[in-house]
Design a protein around this nucleic acid. Sequence first.
RNA 1: GGCGGUGUAGCUCAGUCGGUCAGAGCAUGCGGCUCAUAUCCGCAGUGUCCGGGGUUCAAAUCCCUGCACCGCCA
Length: 523
Amino acid sequence: MHPKSKGAFYITTPIYYVNDVPHIGHAYTTIAADILTRFKRLEGYQAFFLTGTDEHGQKVEKAAQERGIDPKAHCDEMVKRFESLWQRFNISNNDFIRTTEVRHKKVVQKILQDLYDRGEIYQDSYEGWYCVPCERFWTEKDLIEGKCPDCLREVVEISEKNYFFRMSKYQSWLIEHIEKNDRFILPSSRRNEILGFLQRPLEDLCISRPKKRLRWGIEIPFDTDYVTYVWFDALINYVSGIGYGSGENSFSNLWPQAIHLIGKDILTTHTVYWPTMLNGIGLTPPKMVFAHGWWTVEGKKMSKSLQNVVEPNRLIDTYGVDAVRYFLMREVSFGMDGDFSHSAMVHRINSDLANDLGNLFSRALSMVIRYFDGNIPTPSSLKEIDQRLQEVSVKVLTQLPQQMNDLSFNKALTTLWEIVSASNKYVDETAPWSLAKEEKDQPRLSTVLYQTLESLRIIALLLAPFMPSTAEKMWSQLGMEGSLWEQNLEENVKWGGLKPGRRVAKPTPLFPRIDPTKIEKGI
RNA sequence: GGCGGUGUAGCUCAGUCGGUCAGAGCAUGCGGCUCAUAUCCGCAGUGUCCGGGGUUCAAAUCCCUGCACCGCCA
């Protein structure tokens, strides 16, 4: 733990289904989690970030079968697509959990056995209709014209013995928990939805699948004819991934601070199944479950049939990692649906990144090189206008932490950009190019450029969670020593951290402007 | 069908407790600067706050109602 740690933080993404092709939605959740984690670390928290893959279930079994290989071998291959994408996106996860790992299976089985021993799991027969592609049971009245209400494909009638978790008995406890904790489910519209859902009787949860139907899963420890239902298996990653049951302190430190970031499509599993499961094994629910929205593409829903699935690797190739990270966080407020379009992307890059931030950086460094031979000047006495610039940073710093706690990433970026705008305006109003013409104005010129560079240093620090490599680049070109990541927001954001006398680098454009017409053709 | 939500500038949206709340950004137009990636800065707009009714000294805000759209559940 960091010597000055303010405490623990535990941030997760869902574990992604290994058969999926990674798309913008996966990237979105993971980038958001990364940004929150990096921000918390800069604030001095010990923040642990877990992501991973969900590898069991019928679709994986079937895909492996079709390829004529072992399911595990299939997974080993598929999981690389996620791992390499996260590497490209500069994702700073502390661990990566796979549900096929021994450490995970052991925890799932331990939990199953524990619940079974205490009568929380019982056997019963189940009759219903089963949709093979969706791997879901439906009751008679769920069906739409005799077909799966989800995918409208044929269902088969099945009657079989299965194991059930007594989820229903936790219903009133769960309602009370949600009502007492208004930040447990966010945004609040999702909280309302779940409270509405819970007004109807909650049923027990079927947590087994007979091996005759599905072999690729975690074997039920007390009945080897069955494997575990994939959701029951998958949700447990959040505790198996930080050593539940190992007796280590890290688990008990981290778990109470858990924040799950999820897409709105998996709200029920995370806010109904999962908390009741946790209660069943004597653990508290996660501190927060935040459901974000979905991305449409050029106004249309993403789908394979429309062939408009946005491939994150291709986005990185076209726009660069940090620009994509920025766009996804800046364009829509977390929790709302958003639309991805190339014109919006190019627009954000050109106006926010190239014109506002990049150009500010460029003009500031250029003047230091031109007027001071690249040496950071020593400021002299401050005028009111210089003070006002400082005050903007102070104000931003008081607002950012709260906005980040609320996962209002777009607000945080808007707030941060107030320093960018104020700095551009400051340069304009102080007109250093005019000061440079008169020898007597040298002290004033020194102050003005120092103030501008110092604003940029603070911008770099606060921007780091969002755009890590851009921030590092700014940091080193500003002549700062040491790693940006060893900074602490409380101490190092204070005005005056920039060292006079150190040399700045010749600026290279942080974000080259993009010709919109080229993108239209190229994509 | 039940529950919840949304409707504000050309676009995307912010508007907390009813009282400088008619706002921001982008887009558009005009002007200024020349350090900078043709970038930056300033100024200027345009509004049936979805329609109708009500409460109030006062409503974008609260209540009723109609319409449209969205989400969850069925």
